[in-house]
């Protein structure tokens, strides 16, 4: 198995790691870079627990090869905190109890952040559609939708 040196930017920081060519970006992030926020739920792009951004576009890290990160910009849930302060989405997820076991939460946060950057005032339907690629087996989704609505409102004030 050949190892490849990958130079990338993760949450704004320059990062280098070496990985085999058959490794997914999800495994590279978790096992080589030490960013364990992105989770493996299904490994087949169905559950969204490994959602990250690749050059600003929402993707499943399990469907990206680690080597593909070379020269690109990756965003993970760890990048949501700024200056030690939680992102409004994180605060509202806590306030609205929009999680139980928490495995899906990082994926929901990254997906919701990408949505709100494009559409600061989404309708409930737009939120549900944008988050359709993120599965949660605990909450029944309603609290997640409410939390995203509340975060959107909060973010529009700023």
């Amino acid at each position: 198995m050949t190892g490849v040196l990958v130079s990338t930017t993760i949450n704004g920081d320059a990062v280098q790691f070496a990985c085999p060519t058959d490794e997914t970006l999800l495994d590279s992030l978790r096992n080589r870079v030490g960013l364990t926020g992105a989770k493996e739920g299904c490994g087949t792009g169905d559950c969204g627990a490994c959602s990250v951004t690749l050059d600003g576009r929402l993707v499943c890290a399990c469907l990206v090869l680690g080597v593909e990160a070379n020269g690109r910009e990756i965003g993970t849930v760890e990048g949501l905190v700024e200056d030690g302060k939680l992102h409004p989405l994180q605060e509202k997820f806590i306030e609205h109890a929009a999680l139980q076991c928490g495995i899906c939460t990082p994926g929901f946060l990254v997906a919701a952040k990408t949505l709100l950057e494009k559409n600061p005032k989404p309708s409930e339907e737009q939120i549900r559609y944008a988050l359709a690629g993120n599965l949660c087996r605990c909450t029944g989704y309603d609290k997640i939708v409410r939390a995203v609505q509340a975060a959107a409102k909060e973010m529009r004030k700023k």
């Binding site: 792009g45 690749l54 929402l58 993707v59 499943c60 997906a111 359709a132 690629g133 993120n134």
Partner: peptide, 9 residues
């Protein structure tokens, strides 16, 4: 085709 995530690729 697929989710927002899948459409990103």
């Amino acid at each position: 085709i697929g989710s927002t995530q899948v459409q990103g690729r």
